[in-house]
Amino acid sequence: MSPTNYLLLSGLLFTVGAIGVLVRRNAIVVFMCIELMLNAVNLSLVTFARINGQLDGQVMAFFVMVVAAAEVVVGLAIIMSIFRTRRSSSVDDANLLKY
C-alpha cells in the first residue's frame, strides 16, 4: 500500500482532533483531542521516515511520546485543581476572565 495513504489518515486524525478541541466543552475531552493531534503527528513522522528511508522520524516519534506523557501529567493536575474548586470540568463554566 502506498505510504501516502498513511499521510492522509494522519491529516484526517489531526483535523478530527483540531475540530474536537474547538467544539467539545469538557476539559478532559478537549485534552484527549489534543493528544489525538499529537498522535496524528507521530503517524506522519513515522510515515515520512519510511518514505525518506531513515530512522530519524521514528526516533522523533519517541520524543513526542515522552513530551505528550509529561503534558498529560501537567494537564490533568491543572484540570483536577480547577475541578476541586468549581466541581465542574466544563470549559464554558470558567468564565470569570473576559473582555
Binding site: I34, A40, F48, G75, I79
Partner: peptide, 27 residues
C-alpha cells in the same frame, strides 16, 4: 486556576500545530 486551564489547553493546542509543521518539514 482559570488562567492556568486556558493557558494550558490553548498552549497544548498551539504546540500540536508546531509539531505537525515539524512533521511536514521533515517530510
Amino acid at each position: 486556576q482559570e488562567a492556568a486551564v486556558k493557558y494550558f489547553l490553548l498552549g497544548a493546542f498551539a504546540s500540536a500545530f508546531f509539531l505537525y509543521g515539524l512533521a511536514l518539514l521533515y517530510g
